[in-house]
Amino acid sequence: MTADMIAPEWMHTPITAAQYDSWSPEQCRGIEIVDGMVVVSPSASKRHNRLARFLANALDAAASPEWNADTDFDVRLQDVPLTNRRPDVVVYRADTIDITPTRPEHVLLVVEVVSPGSETTDRIVKMEQYAKAGISFYWRVEQTANGVPLVYTYVLDPAAGLYRDSDVFTDIVKTAVPFPLEISLSSI
């Protein structure tokens, strides 16, 4: 059995930004591109999706009119080799709503909800990639056994190109950055 019989060609050959941009939305759903290689993401759980939507709605409501919060679209971290990530929640400049691809300079905050199988990627890999791309804020949401998530917040140190620990929230997220926000995690 050869690799061609196991996976389509595009899964084991690097792709370019131009190739990816020619794909349909259906072809791009459920994947990310890392260093030109397709990475297939398993479908998220209902709890994961609900948590992401809840946070996106709360962030969108709290943000000034200059910012939107949404889910389920790519952020193009680099063109060569192509790296597209699909954060669970993105807070982006409202005036870029019709610009594709969304680039790091359009983004204020990304949120990743950690699920079984994404622990290392969300805790280490994506955190480093988002920092290197210059995205100012990163939130990592850990699901817990009691159902009330923990929210770890990070702020970019641009001189070091790394995120610095900020706050960890349980039950209530109350922060002034990147804008004032207070939400109850237990209501999810």
Rank of each mutant, 00 (worst) to 15 (best):
R140T: 00
S64Q: 13
I97H: 10
R47Y: 14
L51H: 01
P178S: 10
L51F: 06
A133L: 05
T71M: 14
A7Q: 14
I188F: 04
S136A: 15
S41H: 12
E66M: 13
E105D: 15
R85H: 13
T71N: 14
V173D: 02
R53Y: 08
E142Y: 02
I6G: 00
V90D: 02
S184R: 15
E182H: 00
V155Q: 13
T153S: 15
S45T: 15
I15S: 08
R164I: 10
L51W: 07
R164P: 01
S166D: 15
V40L: 07
P104F: 13
H48V: 07
S22A: 15
M1Q: 02
P116V: 02
P178L: 08
M5G: 09
D35F: 10
A44K: 14
V151M: 11
V168N: 01
A56F: 00
P14H: 09
Q78E: 14
V177C: 03
M5S: 11
M37N: 09
F137V: 05
A44V: 08
A18Y: 06
P149M: 06
N57T: 06
P180E: 05
H12G: 07
V75T: 13
P25F: 12
E66D: 15
D88M: 10
K174E: 15
M11G: 00
N146I: 04
P104N: 12
E32C: 09
L82C: 09
E119Y: 03
A56E: 04
N49Y: 00
Q27T: 11
I183K: 07
D88F: 07
Q143G: 00
A61T: 03
S187T: 13
I99H: 11
M5V: 01
V39T: 11
T153Q: 11
A62L: 09
N146A: 05
G147H: 10
I188A: 01
K46C: 07
E9W: 11
D72C: 07
F73V: 01
R47M: 05
P180A: 05
R93F: 00
S24Q: 03
A62C: 03
